[in-house]
Amino acid sequence: MTEIELPAAVRAYLTAHAAKDDDAAARAFAPDAAVTDEGRTFRGRREISAWRHQASTEWTYTTEVTGSRRDGEDWIVAIRLEGNFPGGVADLEQRFTVRDGAIARLVIA
Rank of each mutant, 00 (worst) to 15 (best):
M1R: 07
M1W: 09
E3Y: 08
E5V: 13
E5F: 06
E5Y: 02
A8E: 15
A9Q: 04
A9I: 10
A9G: 08
R11P: 13
A12V: 15
Y13V: 02
L14G: 06
L14P: 10
L14D: 10
T15N: 07
H17M: 12
A19N: 15
K20E: 05
D21T: 04
D21F: 01
D22V: 14
D23L: 04
D23P: 14
A26Q: 08
R27V: 00
A28H: 09
F29K: 09
A30K: 03
D32L: 03
A33V: 05
A33I: 02
T36V: 01
T36Y: 03
T36Q: 02
T36N: 02
D37G: 05
E38Q: 05
G39D: 04
R40K: 11
R40G: 11
R40T: 12
R40V: 11
T41V: 07
F42P: 01
F42W: 05
F42M: 10
R43T: 10
R45V: 07
R45T: 06
R46Q: 14
R46H: 10
E47W: 05
E47V: 10
I48N: 00
H53N: 15
H53I: 11
Q54N: 13
Q54R: 14
A55I: 13
A55W: 09
T57C: 11
T57H: 11
T60Q: 09
Y61V: 11
Y61K: 06
T63A: 06
T63D: 14
E64F: 02
V65R: 06
V65L: 12
T66R: 03
S68V: 01
S68E: 03
R70L: 15
D71E: 14
G72L: 07
G72W: 07
E73S: 15
D74I: 05
D74A: 12
I76N: 06
I76C: 08
V77Y: 13
R80L: 13
R80Q: 08
L81T: 03
L81R: 03
G83K: 02
G83H: 03
P86Y: 00
P86D: 02
G87W: 00
G88R: 00
D91V: 04
L92T: 00
E93I: 06
E93Q: 15
R95W: 13
R95F: 14
R95G: 05
F96W: 09
T97D: 11
T97R: 15
T97F: 12
T97C: 12
T97N: 05
V98H: 09
R99Y: 11
R99D: 13
R99C: 10
D100H: 11
D100M: 04
G101Q: 05
G101Y: 10
A102W: 08
I103C: 12
A104I: 02
I108H: 01
A109Y: 05
A109R: 09
